[in-house]
Computed example of a mutant assay.
Amino acid sequence: MLELNPDIPKDPEKVARIMASAVKIFAQHGYLQAKTAEIAKNAEVSKGIVFRYFGDKGHLYLATVAYVIDLLTKRADFSVWTEARDLGDMIERAVRYKIQLQLEYPDEFRLSVQSFGEMNVLPEEIRPAIGELWQKQTTTSIATLEKPVLARMKLRPGVDKAVLEKLLTAIGNAVFADAQVFMKAHPDAKIEDFEPIISQIQAEYDILEHGFEAESV
């Protein structure tokens, strides 16, 4: 979790209540309509404590998104990805598992997805940090989740694994950009609404894995 004022002593129980309240209210109302006073009330702390701990509403939102990403990362079972047979199998497993996680953590997923679509209404000083959070998450996921699958796949002679990983990273970056565009147009989207993007990823991985030239007769 990001902290604007790391040197200020903080009560861990109050921080936990503030985070739980902020996740719920930001997810339900979005950044603009969420009220810091309501977050404080639901967390059973004063509004002053919220500002003392996090500085302002914008940085509270940033801390909350960072908290959500960290929570979902810790709760995720990465074997769903790493035990996949190939890249196509990995994508199919990932989609199903993410929907399952969404049902288990609805507010956390809603906020994580909303943070894309709300980028243009957030205070300018936190926009780069939000973008960096998701860019880092995308890059880390590719390195952590795809490499074990690649290690089990039989690559044709002459394929440079470093170049292949670079191509996968490029696809991941493109997915990140596509997701941002999609969320700006569909701020209330759910994980399953990303199916067209997932299908596109599957098609790209299939071409990358099997090539695009027809076998000669």
Rank of each mutant, 00 (worst) to 15 (best):
M1W: 05
M1T: 07
L2Y: 15
N5Q: 07
P6H: 04
D11N: 15
D11T: 10
K14A: 14
A16Y: 08
R17E: 12
I18R: 03
M19R: 11
M19N: 08
A22M: 00
A22I: 00
V23L: 02
K24G: 02
F26V: 02
F26A: 02
F26D: 03
A27T: 04
H29V: 00
H29K: 15
A34T: 04
A34C: 02
A40C: 02
N42R: 15
A43K: 03
V45H: 06
K47V: 08
I49K: 10
V50N: 04
V50P: 04
L62R: 07
A63D: 06
A63N: 03
A66S: 15
Y67V: 01
V68F: 01
T73H: 13
D77F: 00
F78M: 09
W81K: 05
W81E: 09
T82F: 01
E83Q: 13
A84E: 00
A84W: 00
D86I: 02
D86H: 07
D86S: 03
L87M: 13
L87R: 00
L87H: 01
G88L: 13
R93D: 07
V95E: 12
R96S: 13
Y97T: 02
K98S: 14
K98L: 14
L101D: 05
Q102E: 15
Q102K: 09
L103W: 08
E104H: 05
P106V: 02
L111Y: 02
S112P: 02
S112L: 15
S112F: 14
V113Q: 11
Q114I: 08
E118C: 06
E118P: 08
N120W: 09
L122G: 07
P123H: 05
E124K: 15
I126L: 04
I126A: 05
G131T: 06
E132H: 12
L133M: 13
K136I: 11
T139R: 14
A143H: 13
A143V: 11
A143S: 13
L145A: 14
E146L: 13
L150M: 05
L150V: 01
R152Y: 04
R156G: 07
P157M: 08
G158P: 00
G158A: 00
G158I: 01
V159C: 03
L164W: 00
L164V: 00
G172A: 00
V175W: 09
D178T: 10
A179Q: 09
A179N: 07
M183Y: 11
K184R: 13
P187R: 06
D188R: 12
I191A: 13
I191F: 14
D193V: 09
P196Y: 04
I197F: 03
I198A: 14
S199A: 13
S199M: 11
Y205K: 07
Y205W: 09
Y205L: 15
G211P: 03
F212S: 14
F212W: 11
E213Y: 10
A214F: 11
A214P: 07
V217C: 08
